[in-house]
Design a protein around this nucleic acid. Structure first.
Length: 414
DNA sequence: TCTGGGGTCCTAGGACCC
DNA sequence: TCTGGGGTCCTAGGACCC
């Protein structure tokens, strides 16, 4: 039950990574550009310019496929620092329009603009002002969707692209959604789309012909949410959160795909050490302690397993994370099996560690201090400058580059 | 065509407890 | 020998998002 009408903006930067790269190299402007790596690297497209999209190139597509579809495309490595910087600039602009800003990812945000009419005027005028400010302050284009829920704002910003503003007038939500493809609903991917098609549901409006209970039977909890979404409601899950509500991270993970598959135990364990260090570092930075450590292992043929272990007491120490990850690895790795990817994942966070006896607590504290010092060194001299002894073992200690294409997770503030 | 990395949420089964 | 019911924790896998 909606007690009062909300005005939500969804602001989405247009071809964000590509646009930022264009600022650094104006030569790229107007050309087919693919960000994410080189044309014959192992990896996928992070972002494609509108020119490249005309050839069928889109994000998440293997780089090699993109090269075949659009041979003349320019391939550019990603620059996460640049994207973070421009994301922060965008955040500053947004914050000057509403105190309730929530970055949903590096290039999109929700604003609760409810009750700002006195200051900013009616929604469309506010949006146009915001649009202009974004352009003048960041030199980047964005699109803005306006609606009475996150869902409507999100869907309408997609329809406003590129470089547009779209307002769905309150009361018109269902009419706006009805003709759209079910795939346009956030959360409906390839699989759900196929399942809906099998029931003869192609457009959002078709959902209205079915009872909520029928959808629940077919799709469980998600089916119920889907019924609500067809009416434009933020039904279920993350969408229900108030804009700007502070939500703690639920997991921290790092993974690495080798350029060449490897079955070398020493190299694999060395990678695990590096990944454990990266996870431990992030835990310490955010003051979190994890109880569950998970290993992810992907073989050459892409079969993937995950194996988890939950500790009696939470940790944020590289050594303890590594110990668990390695134990899981040794227990589950098919000896000699060629590995494509390794990952280390931490979850079940607690703010305070269960210290156990005092001596033990002191020992851990010393470790923590040593590791924090290492963190500062890394800040200064780069990720490869410091490693614990076991990570140094062997000649395979390689540098894991910061994910060139990756996106940070949901963060409240950049 | 040969498939990244970092997240969230959901399901389902088994263990264990009352 | 035929076998409850609910709650919680843990693990594995998968859909989905950017």
């Amino acid at each position: 039950m909606v007690l009062f009408l909300r005005t939500i903006f969804h602001v989405d930067m247009d071809a964000f990574f590509v646009s930022v790269e264009e600022l650094f190299d104006p030569e790229l402007k107007g050309k087919a550009v693919v960000v994410g790596g080189q044309r014959n690297e192992r990896g996928v497209v992070s972002a494609a310019s509108y020119e490249a999209r005309k050839f069928g190139v889109h994000s998440a597509m293997p780089l090699r496929t993109a090269a075949k579809l659009c041979p003349r495309a320019i391939f550019v490595d990603g620059h996460p620092e640049r994207y973070r910087e421009y994301s922060e600039r965008a955040y500053r602009v947004l914050s000057s329009f509403s105190p309730l800003v929530e970055m949903a990812s590096i290039d999109e945000a929700y604003l609760d603009m409810t009750g700002t009419e006195r200051l900013h005027g009616p929604p469309l005028r506010a949006a146009h002002n915001l649009h202009q400010r974004m352009k003048s302050d960041t030199r980047l284009n964005c699109s803005i969707g306006i609606g009475s829920s996150r869902l409507i704002a999100k869907v309408s910003s997609a329809k406003a692209k590129p470089n547009g503003v779209l307002w769905v007038v309150p009361g018109q939500e269902a009419r706006f959604l009805a003709p759209l493809d079910v795939r346009d609903i956030p959360g409906v991917g390839k699989v759900t789309e196929q399942n809906l098609h099998a029931l003869g549901i192609q457009r959002v409006g078709d959902l209205g012909r079915f009872e909520d209970s029928f959808l629940e039977q077919h799709f469980g909890k998600w089916g119920l949410a889907l019924a609500g979404k067809a009416r434009g409601e933020d039904a279920g899950g993350w969408f229900d959160n108030e804009v700007g509500a502070d939500i703690d991270a639920k997991s921290i993970s790092h993974e690495h795909t080798y350029n060449q598959d490897t079955g070398n135990a020493e190299q694999l364990e060395s990678t695990l050490m590096r990944l454990s260090e990266m996870v431990g570092r992030r835990l310490r930075e955010s003051g979190l302690h994890a109880r569950t450590i998970q290993l992810k292992l992907r073989y050459k043929d892409f079969t993937t397993i995950t194996r988890a272990h939950t500790l009696p007491a939470p940790t944020q120490l590289d050594t303890e994370i590594f110990e668990q990850a390695r134990a899981l690895f040794r227990k589950n790795w098919r000896k000699g099996g060629e590995v494509r990817l390794l990952g280390v994942h931490a979850s079940s966070f607690e703010r305070q560690p269960d210290q156990g006896d005092l001596l033990e607590g002191a020992r851990r504290e010393r470790w923590k201090q040593a590791l924090s010092a290492a963190d500062r060194l890394r800040d200064k001299f780069g990720e490869s400058s410091v490693a614990l002894a076991s990570g140094m073992k062997g000649s395979f200690r390689e540098r894991i580059h910061e994910n060139p294409a990756g996106l940070p997770g949901k963060t409240r503030k950049p």
